[in-house]
Each structure stands twice: as C-alpha cells, then as structure tokens.
C-alpha cells in the first residue's frame, strides 16, 4: 500500500467519486504536510449498535448498492475482507479495497478463487476476527462447500450475495437460484430489496451473527445490477461512527488457538493435575502431568 501517497479524491474507473457521501472534515497531519490516509479511520468512534441503528442522526445520499455496501463496511469495524471478482459483485469488493487503503478495513487481499476465499473467511472467523466478503451466482456455488462449513463451525461471518444467473444459459442478469442453496446451508439469509436494505442489513448482520445465542454466518442477498449498480436513496449515520469490534470471547464456541495464546497459566494446575512441571517450548509453556515417581502420565499440550 502506498503510505501517505493517496490522492485527495479517489475515483472509480468511470471517473465518478467513489461515494457521494460528504467528505469528512479536513484531517491533515503535520507529517510533511501530507494527509494521513488512515486519519479518518483512526478517528472513528465506536458507538453501541442501538445508537448506530436507532439514535444516530442520518443523512440521505443517492448512491449505488455497491456504495451502500462500502459505506456499511466502513461503519462496521471489519477486520478482514477477502476478494475475488465476479460480475456483478466485483465493484463491491473493489470499493472495500479502497476502504482498506483508507484504513477502515484492517486486512484485505484477493483470494485464489471462491473456494479459497470462503475457506480463508472460515479460518479468519474461527481465529476471532470480523470478516466480510461477497460473491455472486457461479461464485456462490463454487464456494458453497466452505460456505456450508461456516454454519457447521458456528462461524459469525458475513457474506454479501449479489445474486445473478448461475449458468445455462450463461448470463449475468439477476436471478435468485443461489438463494435456494443458501437457505439449505444453515446460515441466516437476508434479502435486501433496495439500497437502504443493503446498507442496514450488512451492518445488522455483523451484530446478529456475533450474538452469543446466534453465532452463525449471515448472508445478505440482493439482486445483482438492480440493486448493486442502480442508485437509490440511502440514509446513513455519520461515517465517524463505527460498531464495536468483534469480541471473540463471547461466542458460543472458542476461537482458534486462543488457548495457546493463554497457555502460560492453568489456574487450577496446582489443585487438580498439573502440579509440578511446566516446560517452555519456544514462547509457550507446556504442562506435563507427572505421577508420584516423576514419570510423565500424559503430555497434555504437545498435540495442541
């Protein structure tokens, strides 16, 4: 990423402003007179979901569905987004890439193909971070196996589906066939009928999917082109606000490797079974259960 060299105003290939949302107040730093490209993102303030959805003043904009998705992700404190282009979704993830450049999304890359993207989302969500991706039509079916694994693993990931014809005849027009598959995948499925729905549903999807008593992926579907590429009115809270980050401790399943990170202390070790020996391997300690003669009963953590 080109640190500090971002242009003042980004444009998409059509030459339009990336979003018609009003620019934030000037946030120039003293860094040689250059604007900190992450400055606005750093100044975002976390607010409660209740405030974000029901109390924060909103301004109405006339923007495309893809831009609505971008603005939703901007306010959703997303940690990771993985992209793979497919019409009509490509523009959405392209705009998320712009958010990455601006520091609103912490990590972003293009996957190998949809199977790899959805697998990466599975791993990242399991690791405890907030994830967002999007796909469409054939991409949905190509990534379906790992998508189905999300719900089985109780992963709170959010995926946007800009629905289109899958194939035969090959076309890129809107179609809802892929939703039939998603409805059988164990995930929660929303269908956004317009740009406003898309903005609201994406943000609420993060909150709902991460609720302890939900802990499931959410798919936010919409018609490709009719919603993604058409402009509509969308009321949005100020982009200086963002949702609280994901709290990985609150899921109904533990996040991956959390125990390894916390392995230094086993609080009951003296009381129960691990009384005597802790060995250090690299930066981590491993507990060994010893019997009275000092023989290892079980090497408890080496297989972590």
């Amino acid at each position: 990423m080109s640190e500090g060299l971002e242009a003042e105003v980004k444009t998409n290939p059509q030459g339009d402003p990336i979003t018609s949302a009003p620019a934030a107040p000037s946030t120039t730093s003293t860094n040689g007179g250059r604007k900190d490209p992450h400055g606005d993102a750093k100044r975002q303030v976390e607010v409660s979901p209740d405030y974000m959805f029901f109390e924060a003043p909103r301004e109405r904009e006339f923007i495309t569905g893809s831009e609505c998705a971008k603005e939703a992700v901007r306010r959703s404190n997303v940690d990771l987004s993985v992209a793979y282009p497919i019409t009509p979704q490509s523009e959405t993830l392209q705009l998320i890439g712009v958010l990455y450049g601006e520091g609103y999304v912490k990590e972003f890359y293009r996957g190998e193909e949809e199977y790899g993207v959805m697998s990466a989302i599975a791993g990242a969500s399991r690791a405890g971070v907030r994830c967002f991706t999007a796909t469409a039509g054939p991409g949905t079916l190509r990534g379906l196996e790992p998508i189905v694994s999300w719900s089985g693993h109780r992963l709170p990931a959010v995926c946007m589906f800009t629905c289109r014809v899958v194939n035969a005849p090959l076309a890129i027009q809107p179609d809802n066939v892929e939703i039939a598959y998603l409805l059988q995948s164990g995930m929660i499925v929303f269908h956004a009928e317009n740009q406003q729905d898309l903005f609201d549903f994406i943000m609420k999807a993060f909150v709902i999917s991460e609720k302890n008593d939900v802990t499931l992926p959410v798919g936010v579907c919409c018609d490709g082109f009719f919603v993604t590429h058409a402009r509509g009115y969308c009321s949005m809270p100020d982009k200086g606000f963002k949702l609280p980050g994901r709290d990985p401790y609150r899921g109904s399943v533990p996040v991956l490797d959390a125990q390894l990170d916390c392995l230094v202390m086993l609080q009951f070790k003296n009381l129960i079974l691990w009384p005597t020996t802790f060995t250090r391997c690299g930066s981590r300690k491993y507990g060994l259960a010893l019997n009275g003669q000092g023989n290892i009963l079980r090497n408890i953590w080496m297989d972590c």
């Binding site: 916390c262 392995l263 230094v264 202390m265 981590r284």
Partner: peptide, 8 residues
C-alpha cells in the same frame, strides 16, 4: 496466578 506475559 494473574495474567502475565503471553496471555490475552
């Protein structure tokens, strides 16, 4: 033992 180096 309270949390120390290497934990959350």
């Amino acid at each position: 033992e309270t949390p120390g180096d290497g934990n959350a």
